[in-house]
Amino acid sequence: MTGSTGLWVLAGTLVAGLVVGVLLHRRNGRIRTTTPEAPSGLPEPVVEALAPGTAVTLVQISTTFCAPCRHTRAVLSHLAKRTEGLTHVDLDVTDRPHVARDLGVLRTPTTLALTSSGRELLRVSGVPKAQELLTALEPHLVPRVERGSHSQGG
């Protein structure tokens, strides 16, 4: 009896694993546009990480226990280096999981693209594809020409 039950559970687990694996694989690196949150809703370490001078900051949420985080760091820092108006910050939240909770991040690496005022443009789970990410961010990178022309309204 145990044998046949176990066999069914084995089959079910493998099918579930296949489905989840394919879904995760598809979702990996996909860009999701998110509903913008109020800047006041951002956790403090994220606000501190925002580069005031640049149009877009990529905030990467990592943990010590995350294997693809290293790869993501390499991709993003390279992208930021060759793109004007773009900075990359790697935020290790291993010892402060509340930061991830406040952001609604369950999985690492997750990368958030934020404007200098803290508005969220998009987020990417898994290792981002550099070119796709750049294309999505391009419209937000352009207005760096008119820097300092606007006074900040409350």
């Binding site: 995760l24 226990f65 995350c66 909770r101 690492t108």
Partner: peptide, 14 residues
């Protein structure tokens, strides 16, 4: 094994 996806690693936050 099949997808090179380390559930334990990525689900640390969870």
């Amino acid at each position: 094994a099949a997808f090179d996806f380390c559930l334990g690693c990525e689900m640390y936050l969870l």
